[in-house]
Write a protein that binds this DNA or RNA. Structure first.
Lengths: 195, 195
DNA sequence: CGCGGGTTTGATGATGCTCAAGCCCGGTGG
DNA sequence: CCACCGGGCTTGAGCATCATCAAACCCGCG
């Protein structure tokens, strides 16, 4: 089986998963293609679906009252995408999610997602693992943001997230790190001169 | 039943929980008292237990190579405490967790924690809810840290976390917010003058 | 050739840090 | 009862870092 989702479940769960079970799992998903720069979720909408990214790149961002954009998450192939708060609470999203490249996803509703967790132990285990990793990664991001300066944050980003680094332009990465594109450009020059 | 844990499970799960089941759940926990300023977890140790705080206040912090402390999490009554990364991965913790007040906890090992999730649906649901809230809260913290200046972060902290505000001194809150105690002191004066 | 998106650069200013000193206050021991 | 101590908070001077804004540049593409 060469479905990316199948591989993903195998990787993040130790419970066996039979072919026919996976086939059933797949029936709960809806394929969806999104052209570059189209919304997966817009501020004010309730996030009804979780998406699994087969192909593409996406970003999640927040717009403040001065119309500044802050990119809070980036997503590429084999990532789950949703706004957690809106999805869990069924409240209007404070964030936007859109595609940075043409993308292919498979979508599933919250109800079906929960159903799959109850019915298939391997699916459930995969979700637990994924959530745990999410918690660890986000916590790490907080720690880095309060303990590192701009340059060290950027260096750490390059080291740990090459898969993002190759896919998004500098000003997107700057926003993700909470620094201005100008500062990022300058510190890149400084770093280049050092080596 | 007036056990704080019982109330907690009821609050964070919609599945019924029978008295005798809860009694069984409790047998998996180990009571533990910790005097003020003693460690729950020290850097380098593997986090073997999750603790549920019955009484007390704790902090989790990171020490960098210049010996600066960065407080990354605060905990009070009715919170679960652990270092997630060390607990999940069974790797040496990069963080310290200690008590800020005399505290009473009940502890449970990872194996037993997983056992309870499998055996008691209400326990499992409570854990899911708790993890989801954790993800939402931490994500929010990231968003705030990249989009707000020091003053607005502090104001937001006061508004959203009075239960921490009352329990920890200023310099601890400053560290939690990623700003220096001096800056916090100054912006408090500025804010006072405004009103 | 011109356009658009992305990056660089300079000038300037705001924000927050560092370090050292002093203050306040509650607790303790003589 | 007073002196002292320690923890926490405040304050000032000087400095480092980073943001802002505007302009220029670069390059791929229609």
């Amino acid at each position: 089986m060469d479905s990316p989702l199948y591989k993903y479940i195998k990787e993040y769960s130790s419970t066996p998963l039979y072919q026919e079970d996976f086939d059933e799992i797949l029936t709960y998903f809806i394929p969806k293609k999104l052209k570059k720069r189209s919304y997966f979720l817009q501020e004010g909408e309730v996030c009804e679906y979780v998406g699994f990214i087969i192909k593409g790149a996406m970003r999640e961002y927040y717009v403040d009252n001065k119309n500044r954009e802050y990119i809070v998450n980036l997503y590429v192939e084999n990532w789950w995408v949703r706004n957690r708060e809106s999805w869990v609470m069924s409240t209007p999203s404070k964030y936007n999610i859109d595609t940075w490249e043409d993308s292919e996803l498979i979508l599933i509703t919250k109800e079906n997602f929960i159903k799959l967790k109850e019915k298939f132990p391997s699916f459930n285990e995969m979700v637990t693992t994924m959530d745990e990793r999410n918690i660890i990664a986000t916590q790490n991001r907080v720690t880095l943001s309060i303990s590192l300066n701009a340059e060290d944050q950027y260096q750490n980003f390059i080291d740990k997230h090459e898969y993002f680094f190759k896919r998004f332009p500098q000003h997107v990465i700057a926003s993700y790190l909470g620094i201005s594109k100008d500062t990022l450009s300058r510190l890149r020059r400084r770093m280049k001169n050092k080596n």
